[in-house]
Amino acid sequence: MNSVILRTATRLLIGLLLLFSVFLLLRGHDLPGGGFIGGLVAASAIALYAIAEGFERAFALLRVRPRTLIGVGLSAAVTAGLLAAVAGDVFLTGLWWVREFEAFTLKLSTPLLFDVGVYLVVVGVVLTMLFSLEEH
């Protein structure tokens, strides 16, 4: 689609949308948000870019094939579950590493890794479908 308004707006919006998707991903443990919704926002950002600039450029922006994203995301989610074995717990038991810094507290956890995996799978699945629709 060749529209100056859309292309200009997309250039402004895509960064915001991707940032917002990461924000949703990170706040998702106790508040509304999470990997699924974050992944959808990220996927729609790329879809918007694809509509404005063409699918080839969106593909180039992404750099990897969407199907690889599914594989990496699925691996991350499964790994998050398997890490519980290291601690001697059941599959998918949440493990937390909390480190206090001067300015902030860093909380890393297997649920976060799981959510990152979900995020990548969602982006991968939505874009796989979108690109395969575009191929027709």
Partner: peptide
């Protein structure tokens, strides 16, 4: 419901892609 929506979303998109291909 969230799970069901996710699944339903995937199945619906698949069905639509399948229909498009069938039509072609």
């Amino acid at each position: 419901i969230l799970t069901a929506i996710v699944i339903g979303f995937g199945l619906t998109v698949f069905a639509i892609v399948l229909l498009l291909r069938t039509y072609e």
